[in-house]
Simulated scan of single mutants.
Amino acid sequence: MARRSSIGDPEALRSSLVELLTDFENHLKSSSLRQQVRELIPANHLLRDLGSSLLRDESAKAARERILRYLLKYVGEVIDGEELMVIGGISEYARRIRELRVEHGWKLITGYTVKDMKADEENGFGEELDSMKPDDYLLLSDEQDRDAAYRWNVANEIRKEKDLSVRDKILKYFRSNVGKEVSGEELRYVANNKSEWARRTRELRTEYGWPIMTQSTGMPELAVSMYVLVEDRQAPEHDRTIKDAVRREVYMRDEHTCQDCGWNHNKWNPSDPRHLEAHHIKHHVDGGENTVGNLVTLCNICHDKRHRKGEND
């Protein structure tokens, strides 16, 4: 059984480690290889204990708890996985992080997921996230998602369905969680960790018309890597040809607000699942182009009203 790190006085642990390493000089000169290795075992234990003791919190005895306490001190900051190895005092820190995300509902994203998203985004996420390495982590919020464990169970069932494509699995997962925030980590898991998950998610929005919102495509208050299927309904086919970059620019120009009724996502709630759409000023059937100048931001309710009045594009 692997030895668990123990909490102690950091200065006392440091002193013991320095003394041991100082004495190790003699072993380097005269001891056998095996003796040298055996003499370093206590140093390895002391180093792990020292890392585990840096929080100076006797209540955080388990590695998972120490890792969480550390992440909570740096919400929104990219953390190197080796930092978590030190503070956790274990080499299996990645497993503990997965438990925090899957079983306990902490909104953690990994460098792997950010890499997949960047490959399918026309714009980056900012210098810090763009520079994330695969073994980097970021805690998005200091609030737990209490429904996460249930969603991960649903995700696990869907990912096992062999007769569904990656895109169909992702859609099924979204439709099982209408109106709820789901993370890129969840979608990556549903897709059996295939990097194409981000592209398939975008296709569901742009080519198939599912109102899947992100921070840059309709819900600016969402954290990076979070998605919401706001309504279980596909958009009309002519609205699916607008590129994300154009749609994003229109929303930003109109301050993510419906230009008819003034609705925006500050007023969003699951019982009123509105979302923003881009409406053609010059009708699409009359040659209206998918340009910023020919588009205006409307909520889906006002968009439908214009169509009912005969403003069909």
Results as ranks from 00 to 15, higher is better:
Ala62Lys: 04
Arg240Phe: 01
Ala155Val: 03
Thr113Ser: 08
Leu20Thr: 08
Gln144Pro: 06
Asn294Gly: 02
Lys73Gln: 06
Glu237Arg: 11
Asn192Thr: 10
Gly184Ser: 07
Leu140Lys: 10
Val178Gly: 11
Phe125Glu: 07
Lys61Gln: 04
Glu19Asp: 09
Lys309Glu: 05
Pro236His: 09
Trp152Asp: 01
Glu77Met: 14
Ser141Thr: 14
Gln36Arg: 15
Asn294Asp: 00
His265Met: 07
Val75Ala: 12
Glu143Ser: 10
Asp232Arg: 13
Val182Phe: 01
Asp57Glu: 03
Leu140Tyr: 04
Ser271Ala: 15
Ile281Tyr: 04
Leu54Asp: 06
Asn300Pro: 06
Arg175Leu: 14
Val78Gly: 11
Ala60Cys: 01
Pro42Val: 08
Ala60Lys: 02
Arg202Ile: 13
Leu21Ile: 09
Ser91Asn: 13
Ala94Ser: 12
Leu100Thr: 03
Ser31Trp: 13
Lys267Met: 15
Ile7Ala: 00
Gly262Glu: 11
Asp142Cys: 06
Met132Thr: 08
Arg200Met: 11
Glu231Thr: 12
His45Asp: 03
Val154Gly: 05
Leu295Lys: 03
Asp136Glu: 11
Val292Leu: 07
Phe174Leu: 00
Val224Cys: 13
Cys299Gly: 07
Tyr93Asn: 02
Ser195His: 12
Arg101Trp: 01
Met1Trp: 09
Arg205Gly: 02
Gly89Leu: 01
Lys305Leu: 05
Leu54Phe: 10
Lys160Cys: 12
Asn156Cys: 04
Thr214Gln: 13
Leu295Met: 05
Pro273Gln: 13
Val86Phe: 07
Ser225Met: 12
Met85Asn: 07
Leu187Arg: 10
Val228Glu: 14
Lys118Gln: 12
Gly184Glu: 04
Ile281Ala: 03
Arg69Val: 01
Arg146Leu: 09
Asp313Leu: 00
Asn123Phe: 12
Pro10Gly: 00
Ala43His: 09
Ala148Phe: 05
Val166Ser: 03
Ser15Val: 13
Gly81Pro: 08
Ile90Asn: 02
Glu122Arg: 11
Gly218Leu: 14
Ser131Phe: 14
His104Gly: 01
Gly111Arg: 09
